[in-house]
Amino acid sequence: MADLASAKSAKSKTESGAEDLRDPAYLKIRDMIYQISGIYQSEEKLYLLASRCARRMSAVHAKTPAEYLEHLTVRGNREAELRLLLNEITIGETYMFRSPPQLEALRSVILPQILKAKSAMGFKRLHLWSAGCSTGEEPYTLAMFLLEESEKMLAGWTFDILATDLNDNSLAAAKAGIYGEYALRSTSEALRRKYFKPHDEKRLQAGEQLKSLIRFERVNLNDDSKMTFLKGMDIIFCCNVLIYFDLGSKRKVMQHFYSNLLPGGYMFMGHAESLYQVDDRFHLVHFPGAIGYWKPPVGYTGGGKP
């Protein structure tokens, strides 16, 4: 994992210059990022934050973390700088099967729950939504996951995935579905053979079976008129998208997601992202290695186990 490699080199760097990491400016930057974007780095992972800051620091010629903090807080271009830093922090977050614990929670807890509730009402159809799908890694992962389950717990069910993004270039790449080694590094040989076809020497292209499950659409999450119509979702993934939104727009988007979800539905975010104080109608549900946000069914009164 490239991420890990860079993290390791960052760690060894900070070990030689340990003073650096103890600079209180990093904690301030950490807390500021958390308040603004919801992305959180625990104290033990500050070296990751430090290495991401280091790249931006050399770009803006800031000599110390404290000086860089100024760039993020008082300088005229602070908003642009914050965005660039967030880009650094979330870099490398997209590849297929990025978060196995989320998929395992889907398989072992969430889907059995939703399937049971829906079949009791006579429904046999599932709708997933990858909101902010970027270049498509997430919806294709979900498509493979669902297809793999289609002969097990999803036998007799139909399902589809809505994949939306604001960026036309990303959407075009997502539709083409052509991926190299980085995007596929966690995709097993068996899945590659089953769902992809060779594109050129180094890359594979998603096959028709995957593509036929996914509907790609350009959606601005701030566009109320559009958001109002995307109803009936069972599960929404929205990873590292809301981090760029201010609190007001974040709340608005979450209100939409809440009404877009069916009762009993779930929402997932990026692995270091938190919804704290954004929308307290969602229940924070802990799964092994993952956190989900749950829209409880009407009449839920607690009791610990959704």
Binding site: I110, L284, K305
Partner: peptide, 12 residues
Amino acid sequence: YEAMGMDLAGDA
């Protein structure tokens, strides 16, 4: 692996 989802805030 324990198959569980826990709504901590809803726990007794």
